[in-house]
């Protein structure tokens, strides 16, 4: 993986301003973390529609629910960790239960929280959010996709969670599609293995294609920017067309993409499956690269798991 370079807060600020210009119903709600979210340009342009509730994540989500109840479209942002854990009940009862049109944005998500360490690294936000009935869960893989996800969420009717790492690649290499809510996107056509990836791990999965090819394994990557509702058709099709699947994410495999794919394939098409991600562990106080290596979220680990699952036998051999 090349070091991710685009700071998503810049993108978030820009796109909010565009949305605010088009739609007077857009509100922005913050909990003292504007420096992390980047919504200041919106505050400067539309001060009446920007609310900072202070260090109070439960209030953040509760107030967003109220704004939606009165017809507005609030974008509420705090660190993914606090959104999923501190405000969990508000997300469930005040937002999801009522199917309110609230857009929840979890910033500094996953391992990009880096040196703030174990108390701050969100390893369960995907799991929490996808367990909420009716919640749409978006986990973009590059900064373009993040921009499109925020736009798409603004016109989508219903509650949406967007996972926002601190940084992502500008654009995934070899991309041929424009992001929409719903589909998975396939890279490559190998018939030995499907690497199913989300968020910043998709870039790592794409790197693994090369490593796998060198090991004689023909693989494909299935990128999952919409975790919920899952494009089960693509997942099952890829599982059928290949001999094994590996999931990869910067999140706990319990509840995360790994859990999701295991649930999906066990019911529809059981295949050998390995799940790469955080395994029953809190994050570390370390930079992104170190943590990816530590948790085995790497192309070489994908290759090792592939060889194990396929008994070392790729079709090309």
């Amino acid at each position: 993986m090349k070091n991710p370079r685009v700071e998503l807060k810049t993108v978030y600020g820009e796109v909010l301003v565009e949305l605010g210009a088009d739609n007077p119903d857009i509100f922005v709600v913050e909990a003292d973390l504007m420096k992390a979210s980047g919504s200041k340009p919106f505050l400067e342009n539309y001060p009446d529609r920007h609310i900072n509730v202070g260090v109070a994540e439960q209030n953040l989500v509760g107030i967003a629910a109220g704004i939606a109840a009165a017809g507005g479209i609030p974008f509420a942002c705090t660190m993914a960790n606090f959104m999923a854990k501190r405000a969990c009940d508000q997300v469930a009862m005040s937002v999801a239960y009522n199917m309110f049109n609230v857009k929840l944005v979890g910033c500094y998500a996953g391992l990009t929280q880096e040196k703030n360490g174990g108390t701050h690294i969100s390893f369960m936000d995907i799991g929490v959010m996808r367990s909420m009935p009716g919640m749409t869960v978006l986990v973009p893989g590059d900064s373009e996709e993040f921009r499109q996800a925020v736009r798409a969420a603004s016109v989508f009717q219903g509650p949406v969670y967007i996972r926002m790492p601190k940084l992502l690649q500008g654009s995934l290499p070899g991309k041929t599609y424009e992001f929409e809510i719903g589909p998975c996107y396939q890279y490559g056509n190998g018939n030995d293995l499907t690497v199913i990836a989300t968020g910043l791990a998709t870039d790592i999965a794409l790197d693994s294609l090369q490593v796998l090819e060198e090991a004689g394994i023909a693989a494909r990557v299935l990128h999952v920017p919409t975790i919920k509702p899952l494009d089960t058709e693509s997942v099952i099709r890829c599982a059928r067309e290949t001999r094994a699947c590996i999931t990869i994410e910067d999140h706990a495999t319990v509840g995360g993409l790994g859990g999701l794919i295991a649930e999906t394939l066990t019911a529809a098409c059981p295949v050998p499956l390995a799940r790469i991600g955080m395994q029953d562990a809190f994050g570390l106080t370390a930079d992104l690269e170190f943590q990816l290596e530590h948790f085995g979220i790497t192309a070489s680990h994908v290759a090792a798991e592939a060889i194990r699952l396929l008994d070392g036998r790729g079709q090309n051999e």
Binding site: N116, G118, T119, H120, L284
Partner: peptide
Amino acid sequence: LRRVDGNLQGHPD
């Protein structure tokens, strides 16, 4: 301070 495996984490542990 703020080093991986350091005794002094970024938040008290």
